[in-house]
Design a protein around this nucleic acid. Structure first.
Lengths: 149, 149
DNA sequence: ATACTTGCAAAGTTTTTGCATTACA
DNA sequence: TGTAATGCAAAAACTTTGCAAGTAT
């Protein structure tokens, strides 16, 4: 199991919140940590069901919602319907292609600085901020080539 | 009909793209321009169906997708299921309450500056940017009072 | 006149729920 | 052991589609 530090930090959050550590949870968490593909529920199901039959869609839905509530993953609208999910310990920008739906993780060193300003802005509305998320839509490299303009 | 300038700019986009101006489109566009409630499809249907019977869900879905493609509105995931929509001519931050789902439009004078930096960051990936969108999750004022902590 | 748009209802997807069973702590 | 989590299948919710009729240009 790779990325032990990320994994351990997440498990610590489970324990802190009295959430049981089941094999299903572990395998879903592990998959999310090690995927950079922004998988859908369907993707996760097919990937994990191979090795771990007896894993139901319902459990994946439950656990993705759980991980979302614990701020371990975030949810991104999928242009093709439903959502895609991303392990989000290190904040980054998501560039989403309007044409093919591809999501690119964009490195953004200024994120922390931005995050501070965003949080200050919402505090003026007496809103207590947690996770910020920046998305930008447009056209990816491949799709620009395919249909120029 | 209020907000004629916003309305006219949108209509101009329709004409530019050879999209017909139907009464349904006009009334949906007008509703989006004048709503600050981030309505769901359901909300729009109920609001408009009163005065304009013979307006179908399908038409609302079609036209919201159209307005989204034209970058007139944006789609925001709704914690309670489905999406909520927002007229998005003047960019702003969305603060989304994890508890009650309320969405607050947060004024953010630095937006333009941020937008520039975000766009520059994604261009390094040969991504051609269009609309950026900043969301922040957390707990709204009311919900903080209800369940302190 | 022509082709785009609409309304309707049906089909297709996606997500949640209820409940009996299992298994973590 | 007690209670939370799971799997399954059914139900609910959400979104798209096909087609005949209507209408903007």
């Amino acid at each position: 199991m790779m990325n032990n530090e990320k994994y351990e930090r997440a498990i610590k959050k489970f324990k802190k919140n009295n959430i049981r550590i089941t094999p299903q949870r572990q395998i879903i968490l592990d998959y999310m940590i090690n995927s950079d593909q922004h998988p859908t529920v369907e993707n996760i199901y097919h990937a994990l069901n191979k090795k771990f039959s007896n894993l139901s869609m319902a459990t994946i839905y439950n656990n993705l919602n759980l991980l979302k509530d614990l701020d371990i993953i975030i949810e991104i609208p999928n242009p093709e319907g439903g959502y895609r999910y991303d392990f989000f310990e290190t904040p980054h920008i998501h560039a989403i292609c309007d044409n093919c739906g591809k999501i690119i993780d964009v490195d953004f060193p200024q994120y922390q600085e931005f995050d501070e300003e965003i949080k200050n802005a919402v505090r003026k509305y007496n809103f207590s901020p947690k996770t910020s998320h920046i998305e930008i839509n447009g056209i990816c490299e491949n799709c620009q080539k395919k249909r120029p303009q």
